[in-house]
């Protein structure tokens, strides 16, 4: 029983870690990569300063 709980806990943790990492990557993608013209204009100076490839 304890072992089952421990495994369940581990699986939830891994899910949380994966979700957090993907959320972070999504934010970085929007800020640095997304091709929409509006996003590009808003994030332009930030993209240059962080040295994301910009245009």
């Amino acid at each position: 029983m304890t072992k089952t709980l421990a495994i369940a806990r581990t699986n939830t943790d891994i899910l949380a870690i994966t979700a957090t990492a993907f959320l972070g990557l999504a934010l970085v993608f929007v800020a640095g990569f997304a091709n929409s013209a509006t996003l590009h204009d808003v994030s332009h100076d930030q993209r240059h300063a962080i040295a994301f490839p910009c245009h």
């Binding site: 972070g24 970085v28 332009h44 930030q46």
Partner: peptide
């Protein structure tokens, strides 16, 4: 826009 996007990118890095 620049400030907002810095908050977004660094929060992304932090996550």
């Amino acid at each position: 826009g620049t400030v907002g996007m810095f908050l977004a990118s660094y929060t992304g890095f932090a996550l």
